[in-house]
Design a binder for these strands. Sequence first.
DNA 1: CGCCTATTTGATCTGATTCAAACAATGTGG
DNA 2: CCACATTGTTTGAATCAGATCAAATAGGCG
Lengths: 245, 245
Amino acid sequence: MTLADTIASRLVRRLQNIDDLLVEEQRALMALPMEVRTFAADQDIVAEGERPTRCCLVVEGFLFRYKLVADGKRQIFSFHVPGDVPDLHSLHLGHMDHSLASLTDCTVAMIPHRAIDELMATRPRLAQTLWRKTLIDAAATRAWMISLGRRSAFARIAHLYCEMLVRLEAVGLATRAQARLPITQSVLADALGLSLIHVNRTLAEIKRSGLIVRDGAMVSVPDWAALVQAADFDPTYLHLRSRGD
Amino acid sequence: MTLADTIASRLVRRLQNIDDLLVEEQRALMALPMEVRTFAADQDIVAEGERPTRCCLVVEGFLFRYKLVADGKRQIFSFHVPGDVPDLHSLHLGHMDHSLASLTDCTVAMIPHRAIDELMATRPRLAQTLWRKTLIDAAATRAWMISLGRRSAFARIAHLYCEMLVRLEAVGLATRAQARLPITQSVLADALGLSLIHVNRTLAEIKRSGLIVRDGAMVSVPDWAALVQAADFDPTYLHLRSRGD
DNA sequence: CGCCTATTTGATCTGATTCAAACAATGTGG
DNA sequence: CCACATTGTTTGAATCAGATCAAATAGGCG
């Protein structure tokens, strides 16, 4: 198995989470041309305003999407794990209305739009699967909105960890009980619409509650059901096949 | 021109806002089967958990999408104006992860998924346009997220009015200076993640500032540039062709 | 060591929430 | 035509979750 095979199989696995793929469709995905690149942590991979000609498949590490606001504040919209294609929308939207950046050191594979277009032209079912993926992304964004609009700081943080653990589990990179998730407190703040200081204090409170144990980048959850309840978490919006859609 | 023609032409006009349509594509859209229905204000049109077999085209009036949270709170995700298809995502997502409801008395046209699927199979370019439409929706959701996460109550309200005025203008239902927009304060609160009382007080402040003049459902904006600045509004995310994409 | 980034703590302030109640407009049935 | 429910708006007062300002601490790393 070549490197490219390993990479493409990650994409296949990710898409299998949301839709059935025929063997030929899997093969076609594996045959996509891709250029592998690495980035250090905290680098823009695609910047707001650009007109990308390629999509970005996460191979290793974590990415996030964000936008800067008038007075220098930042809002983070989503985190991305291996197997995700965070800028799939660039296929049909002229320019980026936000930026895509590396959270950690990471490896990504750039896939030309043209190759994806050709693939979808010959395999319409795959086009549907990819469309579906962008729709699931949108559903996750709405779930995030609920946190921002209607949840306490405590529940926001709990909810984010619930989502990330389930997603990492789905791609085989963690269990619900434990994962490596290197999110700093200031990133957490910009993701959840809170101040860094308040995140720090709420995190201390969560630690006291015992719902989440953080040790550096390692996160563990002693009591999943309790965390889910505190977070008001319902994974339906992730539309993962294994959880019954 | 029959009633169905009038209705379908609204859809055509809306899609023309975001993509060029060939004459045959316009004709194909006009030929879509649709069942016209009316709803009183504040009714669920599609409820969370349902598995719709049809999409809903707004003909007249306003709709919104929302989800109820654990303790009875409500988060509104979007408002929809004539020409919109608020649940286009139901085409590829099994069940609704949120509800679609009428904000005002309204008329909608229900279009069977099957008809849309067939249309897209014969006209792949239209499939792309519709996909693109769902992506623009997602972009609007991200813009909304910024308000929830990083803007003051004043700016949130201003931003919402900016967006709605531009969108109403795009479908020919208003100008940037004036529109009919029957949003109550408690709806505003649930849309912007604020309490009703705080919305009321902020609205009073906005009135004092003169940026927005509300008289019942009529909204007017004496100084568009000033409102845009207060809202930190950049319409790029709406990806309207007329505004240069 | 010195530098940098991340975390932690304290003190203070404020935007926004909650509770409570009045008020206005509209519609309904007797 | 009035009594009265209903829904939306407005106002006051008390409280709180979370922001801001300021500064200390801790951990990597060249």
